[in-house]
């Protein structure tokens, strides 16, 4: 799923990157927390999460807290590894540009 620069297509949109970077700090987060942080409507977050789930980067767990249904999201090992690779590629782009600017 990576392009020539090593960037992962799944993280090309800022929203998906935000979701995965948020989830990379925890074992799991409630759907509502991610939605509030990303300032998305529930359908918009669902759509993004479905796309990430499809490529195996995010897992979804449904359950109950008392009688209330809740949904928890988690970054999978595969997602964490892909995110690390994507961030590494971003750092390389930024570092190469900085080195190029210094040489001039």
């Amino acid at each position: 799923m990576t392009d020539g620069d090593g960037l992962d297509e799944a993280f090309r949109t800022a929203t998906k990157l935000r979701i995965c970077a948020f989830l990379s700090a925890c074992d799991e987060a409630e759907f509502r927390s991610v939605q509030e942080y990303c300032e998305l409507t529930p359908p918009a977050l669902s759509k993004n999460v479905s796309a990430l789930e499809e490529v195996g980067y995010v897992s979804v767990r449904k359950g109950y807290v008392g009688r209330r249904p809740r949904t928890w999201l988690a970054l999978t090992e595969e997602g964490a590894s892909a995110l690390a690779g994507h961030l590494g590629a971003l750092r390389k782009i930024a570092d190469d540009a900085a080195a190029h600017a210094r040489r001039r």
Binding site: L17, I19, A21, L23, S24, A25, C26, Y37, L83
Partner: peptide, 10 residues
Amino acid sequence: QARRSYATAA
């Protein structure tokens, strides 16, 4: 953006 998202969840 990735750093801010990580820090907010942490």
